Simulated assay, not measured.
Amino acid sequence: MRMKLAATAAIALSVLPITASADGEVNIYSYRQAYLLQPLLNAFEKETGIESNVVFAKQGLAERLEREGRNSPADVVMTVDISRVNELVERDLVQSVENDVLEHNIPDNLRHPDGKWFALTTRGRLIFTSKDRVEEGEITTYEQLADDKWQDRICTRSGKHPYNIALISSMIAHHGEAYTEEWLQGLKDNLARKPQGGDRDQIKAIAEGVCDVSIGNSYYYGNMLQDENQRETAEKVRLVFPNADGRGTHVNISSISLTKSAPNRENALRLMEFLSSAEAQRIYAEANTEYPANPEVKPSGLVAEWGDIHPDDLSLQEIADNRNAAVKLVDRVDYDGE
Rank of each mutant, 00 (worst) to 15 (best):
K4S: 11
L5E: 09
I11F: 10
L16I: 12
A20M: 10
E25P: 03
V26H: 02
V26A: 05
N27Q: 13
R32G: 04
A34L: 09
L37E: 02
A43H: 05
I50Q: 04
I50N: 01
Q59C: 08
E68I: 12
G69I: 08
S72P: 00
V80E: 03
V80I: 13
R84D: 11
R84P: 01
E87T: 15
L88K: 02
V89P: 00
N99Y: 09
N99H: 09
L102Q: 06
D108I: 12
N109Y: 14
D114V: 12
D114I: 10
F118M: 09
T122S: 13
T122E: 07
L126M: 14
T129M: 09
S130M: 10
K131S: 06
E138L: 08
E138Q: 14
T140N: 08
Y142S: 05
L145R: 01
K160R: 11
L167R: 04
A173Q: 06
A173G: 13
A173Y: 05
E177Y: 05
A178P: 00
T180G: 08
Q185V: 12
A192H: 02
A192F: 06
A192E: 07
K194P: 03
P195W: 09
D199V: 15
R200T: 13
D201M: 13
I203G: 01
V210R: 07
C211D: 01
V213D: 00
S214I: 05
G216T: 10
N223P: 04
N229D: 14
Q230E: 15
Q230Y: 05
L239N: 04
V240P: 00
F241W: 09
N243T: 14
D245M: 09
R247D: 06
I253Y: 03
I253F: 06
L258G: 01
S261M: 08
A262R: 02
R265Q: 13
S277C: 11
E290D: 10
E290Y: 04
Y291Q: 07
Y291E: 06
N294Y: 05
V297K: 03
S300Y: 04
L302V: 12
D308G: 11
I309C: 07
I309R: 04
D313T: 15
A320W: 03
R332F: 04
D334L: 11
